[in-house]
Structures are given as C-alpha cells and as structure tokens.
C-alpha cells in the first residue's frame, strides 16, 4: 500500500518521438512526443489521424516502429500484461455479442480481467449501474439501442476498476441527447471515480467541454497539447455587431484601452474584467449606435488550433 501513492504521482502517459509506420510507407504516427498528466484527456484528430494507432500502442497491441512510450509508468512494449490489467479499453467498432445479457457479458469480461467469480459479478452490476443500464442488465444486448450498446461497452471497460480508460470515439452513432449523456458520464468517471480517461474524438467541440487537457494530432503528428485552462486562459470574448458606425466604436473602445479585433462585420473585444463589459455597453450607448448583436462567447479551443493548422498545411 505504501508504494501506491507514489505510483499515482507517475505521469499518466509519456511518449518520446513515437513513430509507427506500416511497411515503411504508410505513416500512422510520426515523431510524437507528448506528456499527459492524469485527468480527462481529449485525443483529437480527424479520421485517420492516428488516434486508434496511438491507443493500440498504449495497450501494447502493436509495437511502435521507433520511439518510446510509458503508460502509468510502465512500458507497454515490455510489460503489456501489467499495463492492460490497469487499463480499460472501449473500442470504436461494434464489439458485443448480441445473444447474451449485459450482466452476463460484463461479468465474463471481468473474469477475463482476472477478477474472482463473485467479485466479477458484483463489479459487473456496479459498472452497469454507473453507466445507467442497471434496469436493463438482464436483457439481451442484441435488443439494445445504439446508446445502450455504447454504455455496455463502457461498462465492460470499467468492470475491473482500471486506473486509465481508453475510449475510442465513445459518442459514435449517438444522437445529440445521447452524446451529451455519454460525455457527462465520461466527465463523471474522470471527476468522481478518480479514473483517468483518454477520449478519442474527431469532434473537438465535443470533447473540449469535458476535458482537463487536450492532445491534438493530425496526420500522425502532434499538433498541440496542453491543459484546457492554459489553452482557454483569458479567452472570453465579447462579439459586438452594430449595423453602422463600427469604425467609430472601434476607435472609442481603443481609446478606452480595449484591444479590438475585426471579424467580418463584428468587433471582438476580449473581456479581461467585469468592467470591460460595462465599458463596451456604455461606449455603444454614448455613440448612439444601432446595436445588432452582443455575444459573450467563450473562446473555442478550435480557434486556438486554427492558425497553426493552416500554417501546417
């Protein structure tokens, strides 16, 4: 038990120049070096960016061509069993047998993870309760909706109480309400269960809401990584649209010491303090301009990625 707290302090995932090429031609991952602290981590990238390859390398299912990787302080290429017993994996594709009940299936998966029989049954019930399938757990999986199947997949990844969950596109195929519910669940697992989660998604807007940190990859290369707080710091912006007199307003605001950016017909003013909002409103009122729109928006992480993305292309 004494060793455990120190294990917790180990960095969740560290990669050094991680590279994976298939047959020397197709590059799935190129020179990926990233350090990830525990929490909920969004792994973002377009389809084919190398997210699934990265997950499989972390599970020790495929060997990297070059570079090194450590998960929970362990090297999955050397000790895959140790890593896998502490990691839960939810694949992207359909991966459930249709003609058994969720309770039976998750129990079986618990046993395959090394839980004794009784513990497996108890933990399976618990896991299914946490994902919200408690009532339906004795129904055959074949009769489940897509959302329920995704939850069952999550439950089997959770049954052996892992320290890290790897979720490959958990919101795939879900309707908006289902997406929100799944994301809330993932967030809860990270925040309340004390389990670190890596969520893969090709939708940045989706994961940025629930993540503590983000890793964005494109074409197998690291685009950017960092904590959400660092990325979104001081990034609240007020978008002001007036039907005329925009230049005058911009001049007035700049005179007040507020940096103004133009975006189409809108003026974007960073909201650094509470007063800024009042100052802007007052400026509009004093100039007696017809105000069309006043939007306070959180600077989306997507915008943080945009400049670099375009520079890369």
């Amino acid at each position: 038990m004494l060793a455990f707290p120190t294990l917790c302090l180990v960095t969740l995932i560290v990669t050094q120049a991680l590279t994976k090429t298939y047959g020397g031609r197709v590059t799935a991952l190129a020179d990926l070096s990233v350090t990830v602290e525990p929490g909920v981590i969004g792994l973002v990238g377009a389809n084919g960016a190398g997210k699934s390859t990265f997950l499989k390398i972390m599970l020790g299912l495929i060997e990297p061509t070059d570079g090194s990787v450590r998960v929970l302080g362990l090297d999955p290429t050397v000790e895959p069993d140790k890593v896998r017993s502490r990691v839960g994996y939810m694949p992207e594709n359909e991966s459930l047998p249709p003609d058994v009940s969720a309770a039976e299936f998750v129990t079986h998966m618990g046993r395959i993870s090394g839980l004794p029989r009784t513990a497996a049954r108890e933990r399976a019930s618990e896991a299914l309760r946490h994902v919200g399938l408690y009532e339906e757990r004795y129904r055959q999986i074949g009769g489940y909706s897509t959302g329920m199947k995704q939850r069952a997949k999550l439950a089997q990844a959770l049954v052996h109480d892992p320290d890290l969950l790897l979720l490959d596109e958990p919101t795939n195929g879900l309707d908006p309400a289902g997406r929100d519910a799944m994301l809330a669940l993932v967030h809860r697992i990270g925040a309340e269960f004390g389990i670190s989660v890596v969520v893969c998604s090709h939708l940045l807007g989706e994961v940025e809401r629930i993540c503590d940190s983000l890793v964005a990859i494109e074409g197998g290369r690291l685009l950017r990584s960092g904590s959400m707080s660092a990325m979104t710091e001081a990034s609240d912006v007020l978008a002001v649209e007036v039907s005329e007199g925009a230049p005058e307003l911009a001049a007035a605001l700049e005179a007040l010491g507020l940096p103004v950016r133009h975006e189409g017909r809108m003026l974007l003013v960073p909201l650094e303090s509470e007063e800024a909002y009042d100052q802007i409103l007052r400026a509009v009122a004093e100039l007696d301009l017809p105000l069309h729109r006043l939007d306070q928006r959180r600077h989306r992480v997507a915008e943080l990625f945009t400049p670099k993305e375009t520079a890369d292309v």
Partner: peptide, 8 residues
C-alpha cells in the same frame, strides 16, 4: 476479440 486482447 479486441475486448479480449486488450486484457492480459
């Protein structure tokens, strides 16, 4: 199978 082989 991926669920089996992602375990020890």
């Amino acid at each position: 199978l991926p669920l089996y082989f992602s375990r020890p």
